[in-house]
Design a protein around this nucleic acid. Sequence first.
DNA 1: GGAGGCCTCGGAAGG
DNA 2: CGAGGCCTCC
Length: 779
Amino acid sequence: MDFLNELNDEQRKAVEQLNGPVMIIAGAGSGKTRVLTYRVAHLINSEIDPFNILALTFTNKAAREMRSRIEQMVGTEAKNIWMGTFHSVFAKILRFECERLGYPSNFTIYDTSDSKNLIKAILKEEQLDEKTYKPSLVLNRISAAKTNLISANEYLSNDELLTEDRMSAKPKLGIVYQKYSERLFRSGAMDFDDLLYWTNVLLRDFPDVLNKYQNRFKYVMVDEYQDTNYAQYLIVKRLAAKFENICVVGDDAQSIYAFRGANIQNILNFRKDYPDVKTFKLEQNYRSTKHIVGAANHVIENNRDRLKKTVWTSNMDGEKIKVIRNLTDNEEGMSVARSIFETKMNEQALDKQFAVLYRTNAQSRAIEEALRKMNIPYRIYGGQSFYQRKEIKDLISYFRVVINPQDEEALKRIINYPARGIGKTTIDKLTVLSNDWKQDIWSILRSPDLLNEQFNAGTAKKLEVFVNLIRSFQTELKTTDAYELGSKIASSSGLIGELYSDRSPEGVSRYENIQELLNGLKEFVEEKPGEDEVVDENEVKTLEKFTEDIALLTDADKDTDPQNNDKVTLMTVHASKGLEFPYIYIVGLEENLFPSQLSLSSRPDLEEERRLFYVALTRAEKRVSLSYAVSRFRWGNMVYSEPSRFIEEIPEQFLDLIPSKPAPNKISVTSQVESRNVPVFKRKSTGAGSQKMIKERNLTKYNDSRKPGVLDTGSGNSEHVSRIIVGTEVIHDKFGKGEVVAMEGEPPNVKATVAFQGAGNKQLLLKFAKLRIVGKAKQ
DNA sequence: GGAGGCCTCGGAAGG
DNA sequence: CGAGGCCTCC
């Protein structure tokens, strides 16, 4: 076969090993996707029926890309491969099988905000305090339980868990979990974790189902295996138990999702589950320069918990890694923007060849501002999703109720929106009745007798009108296409009218968003099936199918305008996994930011941060620039930081330390002083191979009892202090005005002798004396 | 029922 | 600082 020649030895061996357990450890940039797609193509060319292949990925995007690449190689047969995310593949299977679990096949998938709202409702009903039982924490705890296949009842009989909850002053957590599960079930709803949890129950408790899917999925492949959690691991293990044709691909060095339950041990222990596993290591990097690969390798060596591998490249040395020091976060933005601008000029680079990576979303602001100032187009990944916007959720909630009227979260959202006189009292009463009778709210609503018995005539009438509205849509669900019915719902519900009447800019934008969703429906309906695809001519593209589809979509899946994609990319390091760019800027490389403050107390957490940094470095093809700021605004406070330890972990031979440049048009005193007097970023060369760097020499920290790193911005701040030199005029709270006549000592213990006009000469430690600068030194 | 004041709190994020 | 949630007041 031709295409096997396009692979290196190890890649080819991995592709050709079709049977039995296979583990592929794929270093960054080693052609992992290529190996995966070729392997599937090779399976199909070896007469394996595509229907017998299951390929699991972590994102829809990865699945789509892989599918289209395989299609290019083997043709439309690729359509029949079971390929998708864990969640989408098993949601599909659950729709076939879930009646065995007591779920309706039109079950709703709750997103995180639905789950949180349900938890809040339960907390209220149980009279638990939302501050003690923070909904996000409660949800995380429930999620962790489900991920480990612990049901609510098992939770309540698990002494260890109950003790933990008592110790953390949340003794009722198990009860909340139990209520939460009941409500989901009663609403015919599953949350994201349920999709994996119930799949496991299905495969565990129904041998015929297990057998059916084991026979269907004779070949199983899992991408990003280092990021699988226990529930996912177990599904894969169960499915593959019969044939053991299981191939997992991953890189332990790029595991960055432990914080949400990924278990790096899954890949580290694969060998234990399958002793006759064939392991292949893809170690040749085709993406990056030698300097980048070298730097990344050295960094990751600081981690203890790793599989052994040596990533290397035959690419050229390339440029050294730039380190840019900045005084503030805004200056950092400007440095990055300026550098992008210069690179575009000097190297004829395109905007889309650049990416700026940061640890937290909040850092994007300063970068955005600077790029805007320099007229550099950019695009941000992340942030609020289209599907999370209120007006979009509202309309989709109508869809959800029409499809599955048991769906309580959606029902509560729309029963009185737009307003139809069904107030809080009525909804509360419905909830109480529903809880007392252990029935979903819709089953109460749909009984006119019950309504007349429980509510006054006016309220009962209003509820009936609402029920009839929903019913009128339901009669069309199977026969009318998604666009037609969706538009009808949007207008007949009064939602469009409500938004149209709001002429404020926000209102207009909401209205436009609804139009965009309706356009999406139209596209969905008009989407042509592939040429060879067998389609039932009478099959209607229903609203039900559309709603199922989008439940598992995120913003990253929305098509971006291909005409207009020449833009600089801004995103978090997490979001950058799997991507590559010629020029990468990693910003905010400061202690307490990257690595994050919250990671510093435990070794595993710090190692995950380091893997995150490793991921960031290895996104780059040609050049990496690292930058940090001496001070930045965080939560309204000026915070002073030291450069990240991760910079120090890169050997000097790979680094190009450049001082911060003053802005071209406005030369600030600060920058002048900094660049003239202060050795900005120096390394000690104490013998061979010492990588210690002299910490910020000019950085004087106030070390009081406040939170580490957070300083009072009031009377004195150390940016000012760092500018104090002999001759500076200063004011002291007690001694008044004076002039610095001498300085001695090394930061942070610089001692200044100040001649005060009223109080004479005083010796003061700069880090304690809150001196304010009133005049600069006359030179 | 909605506007506006007050309070709290802040990680990363796939499905 | 700024977003989001909650409460209050009209």
